[in-house]
């Protein structure tokens, strides 16, 4: 639920509340990661490093459901809908455009919630490895999760052999999104 203010407030105030709504979303990704079978058997250092490099990408997948590519609008969990044009005032136009494209592609695959959750687990453990100490353990966890994702998807769609590879092709898209946009600025009011 994002308490983004109605249009009447200044874009700085909208920006403050938009920045605030990232904090709970990040904490939810940390809790999600801890629920991934095998994640907590990684060293704490490697858990933290994976989360630092993968959380933005997991958030991008989670936020997809808020984006309506046809209407070019975003509906936050509190029910408030914003057109792409009005959100441009926040200065995140390029990120929003990229998000609409990405959510259109991912949305068109029609994944079930459990498939989406398993895909997010794969996204997290496929994140950048720089800083990881036990790369072998992370690669093993990634392999296990990819195998689980493949069998879940192919068991439900035995005659569709294209969906799984198409889904894996979203991983480089997410990495590009991350490289281009995770340096966007947030602003927090200091009272």
């Amino acid at each position: 639920a994002c308490p983004v203010a109605p249009a009447s407030r200044s874009s700085q105030e909208v920006w403050d509340s938009f920045s605030q709504c990232f904090t709970p979303a990040v904490r939810e990704v940390v809790e999600f990661a801890k629920s991934i079978p095998g994640f907590q058997s990684l060293s704490q250092h490697d858990q933290v490093m994976l989360l630092k490099s993968g959380t933005f990408q997991v958030l991008m997948v989670r936020f997809c459901s808020l984006f309506d590519a046809k209407e070019r609008a975003v509906t936050f969990l509190n029910g408030q809908t914003y057109s792409l044009a009005s959100l441009r005032a926040l200065g995140m136009g390029s990120l929003l455009d990229a998000m609409f494209d990405f959510s259109e592609k991912l949305g068109s695959m029609g994944l079930e919630p459990d498939e989406m959750a398993l895909f997010m687990a794969v996204v997290l453990v496929s994140a950048d490895r720089s800083g990881i100490v036990d790369v072998g353990a992370v690669e093993q966890l990634q392999e296990n999760l990819i195998k689980a994702l493949r069998s879940l998807i192919t068991s439900r769609r035995p005659d569709d052999s294209t969906l799984f590879p198409k889904l894996l092709l979203r991983l480089p898209d997410l990495r590009t999104l991350n490289n281009h946009h995770s340096d966007k600025l947030l602003a927090f009011r200091i009272d």
Partner: peptide
């Protein structure tokens, strides 16, 4: 005037993760 602490999305995410793991130590 109110002052603002500005940080990147990536730094904000890192900060919350570090905080979360420190709290659960």
């Amino acid at each position: 005037p109110k002052t603002h602490r500005v940080m990147t999305l990536a730094d904000h995410i890192s900060h919350i993760i570090t905080q979360d793991f420190a709290r659960n130590q």
